[in-house]
Design a protein around this nucleic acid. Structure first.
Lengths: 81, 81
DNA sequence: CTTTGATTTACGCTCCACCGTAAAAGGAGC
DNA sequence: GCTCCTTTTACGGTGGAGCGTAAATCAAAG
């Protein structure tokens, strides 16, 4: 499961995968974040106008966090130790 | 340089570090993204209302991309190969 | 085909990001 | 102190996110 992303579409897809991997519906995320199901839908479908607060709330509900890495860079040995 | 982030403040700080690591000013980012310097400032200062499009544009200018990882998870061996 | 749950889309509303522009505050060096 | 560059803040304006609510579309199961 590759979770790298540099576009809103890729972020949305990663969110959707993580959600389904937990067996959750958009309604489950909605209940945990107080965001509307329609907002979750919009985010998962790659709306770049989504606010950072919205994305962060959904990620928190999913137990995810960001890692900002150099483009195209694979995992560096320095990142491990 | 730790670039993990789960809050808007941490993302802003990571952006600022990446920018300074390249010896760039907010004006340089502004010129590369057509975003106002004030918008870059707001992002770096952790405004969670920032749009995803704005963050993605700045990250693209800096040659950065996201990696969505499990919270608190260190780099897994599966992520390398 | 029909039902049931999930996702998407729509309408009116409020709020605020981002805009252009500009001024004010910081910071480093002389 | 002063200058120069960078960053932050301010003001009026526009576009659109997210809200409540609701309906429409999809999808899988019976």
């Amino acid at each position: 499961m590759d979770l790298s992303a540099r576009t809103a579409e890729q972020i949305g897809e990663a969110i959707r995968r993580a959600r389904k991997a937990r067996g959750w519906t958009q309604g489950d995320i909605s209940a945990r974040t107080n965001l509307r199901v329609a907002t979750i839908s919009s985010l998962e479908n790659g709306d770049a106008g989504t606010k950072l607060a919205t994305l962060l709330a959904v990620m928190a509900a999913l137990g995810l966090e960001f890692r900002l890495v150099e483009r195209g860079g694979s995992v560096e040995i320095e990142d491990i130790f």
